[in-house]
Amino acid sequence: MNGLHVVGSTEPYRSFQTLLAQWIRAKCPEAVFTTIVINHNFEIDRHRDSKNVGPTILLAGGDFTGGGLRLWLGDGDKVKLHDLSVDDSTVVPLDELKYTACLFDGNKAHEVLPFEGDRFSIMAYTVRGFLDATDSDRHGLEAMSYNFPTHETLCRLRRTMETVPRQ
C-alpha cells in the first residue's frame, strides 16, 4: 500500500499504540514516525528499506545473545547488496544495548545478525507518502502520541545520523 493510512483493525489497540509511541519518544525524543512494527525472533537478510523515507528507530529486547544490527553507513544505493563488503560495515551490538534506541538510515543497507534466544524488536519509521496523509489520519496518529513528521523534522533527524547510528 502506498501512502499513510490508519488501519481500522488497529482501533482496539489504541492504548497499546499510545504506550509504544510514548516509550519510543522517551527513548529517542527527536524521533518522528508514522509507523510502528513489532517483530519477534525475526532475522532479516541484507536489504534496503523501500517503503520508508529513511530514519528508523530500533529498540531491541528479550533474552537473547547476538542479533546485532549490521549497517553499511557509507552505502549508496548504486552498489548491489551482495557486492557490499562486511569490512565496510559496522555492527551495533543490540544484545549489549537492550532497550536503547538506535537511530539509523533504513534506506542504507542493513541486516540482522544471527542470534540465540528470544528477541523482540520495535521499529518506528516514516512511511513514504506521509505528506499526503489525510488530516483525519494525521490527527489519529497524533492522538496516540505519534510524533508526526514534517519535511523539516525529517531533515533534522537525517543530520543526526549522517556519520554513525545514534544510540
Rank of each mutant, 00 (worst) to 15 (best):
H5T: 14
S136E: 11
R46M: 15
L154V: 13
T34H: 05
F64D: 10
L157S: 05
G74P: 01
S85V: 14
G140N: 07
R128F: 08
L157H: 09
C102F: 05
D95M: 02
G66L: 12
D83A: 13
D63A: 14
T160M: 05
F115R: 13
P149R: 00
A124H: 01
G3E: 02
I57S: 11
F115N: 08
S89W: 08
E30R: 14
F120M: 01
F148R: 07
R138Y: 01
T134F: 03
F42L: 11
G61S: 06
N2R: 06
L71C: 10
W23G: 00
L84N: 10
L84Q: 08
G74F: 09
P93Q: 01
T153C: 10
F64E: 04
E11T: 13
M161N: 06
I36T: 09
A143K: 14
T56L: 07
R138T: 12
E116W: 02
G66D: 04
L69H: 10
E162I: 08
V37T: 14
N41T: 03
E111M: 15
C102K: 03
A109K: 15
K80L: 12
L71H: 04
V127I: 07
Q22R: 15
V79A: 12
W23V: 00
V91W: 06
H82K: 15
L71P: 01
V53C: 07
R25F: 02
D95T: 02
E43D: 04
F104W: 00
V7C: 07
D105L: 08
I122G: 02
G61A: 05
L20G: 01
E152N: 11
T35K: 13
E142Y: 07
T34L: 05
N41C: 02
A101I: 06
K78Q: 14
F16T: 11
G117I: 03
A101G: 13
F104G: 09
L59W: 01
G62H: 03
F130V: 15
R138S: 01
P93W: 00
A143L: 12
D45A: 14
V7N: 08
E142M: 14
D77F: 11
P165G: 00
Y125C: 07
L94A: 13
D45L: 03
P165S: 00
T10K: 06
F130N: 10
V53M: 07
D75N: 11
H110R: 15
G3F: 02
T134A: 12
S145I: 03
L81F: 10
R119E: 05
H82P: 14
R25Y: 02
D105T: 06
T134Y: 05
L103E: 01
L97F: 10
T150A: 11
R46L: 14
L59E: 02
E116D: 10
R14W: 04
L58D: 04
G3D: 04
H82E: 09
E111P: 07
T100E: 08
R128P: 09
S85N: 13
L157K: 04
L73T: 08
D95H: 08
